[in-house]
Amino acid sequence: MISATGDAASGLTPRAGAASSRETRVARTSHVPLAETDDGHPVIELPPSLARLLDAPSASDADAAWHAFVAQHSRIVLHVCRSVWPAHDEQMDAYAQILDHLRADDHRRLREFARAPRCRVSTWLVVVSRRVCLDLYRQRYGRPTSEEGREQRRARRRLQDLVAEELELHEPATTEREEADAALRHEELHDALQRALTDLASRDLLMLKLRFVDDLSAQEIARLLAFPSPFHVYRRLNVLLAQLRGTLLRLGVESAAP
């Protein structure tokens, strides 16, 4: 079995050394049929159902292969449709749209994917299907152009709130005057936290966001960020929170309470 690589508690990421990072990658992808080219790029074996579809010698073979491919993956595609659309009819519309998208131009998108597959077809299908669903949603209900910026600001705000909560810096105010003071100090706390978060390495900031904004489990984060185990994620999160608390103290912020 692959040994743990790197010590998250010491602040080193599991990718600190080339050899250890390679071990980690192999460990993470043990479920994927994986080989590697000479220049280090992973190559993933094409699933037989997709290979049959793209190599079909005749239209009727392609038709049969398409049905087999859809049958194999419709469960996952429908799962994505249900996650975006609440109503059955809309889910079915989205499902049909995704099939159209995949089938268009003689399965152009699937052919592009198959040219150098770097991931499992099921993972790729989830991402692509969700994008088609969201496009359909925007076509029907529209989206203000400034929405993305607003969402980013909301997410940042949410991260600050959640980190402050984790650091136990938010305290309830009781009187009206205390409320006004608390609001002011809350703003100061947010500014200080924003500065402290800006100083973090990208990888650490990403981990905090995945944990506190996206609510991913430590196990999911461990898989995504190539940590050997969820415990390494917990340890690293503790280190980061302690680091943020220290930065806030240096900036003169101890609590949101007046």
């Binding site: 990658r25 770097r118 991931c119 499992r120 993972t123 790729w124 991402v127 995504l224 960020l225």
Partner: peptide
């Protein structure tokens, strides 16, 4: 979509992964 899915599957090279992170 390829990058996102490859990141999720953990099949990228270290440099590519770091850039995506």
């Amino acid at each position: 979509a390829d990058d996102a899915a490859s990141f999720i599957d953990g099949t990228l090279s270290d440099d590519a992964r770091a850039a995506i992170e």
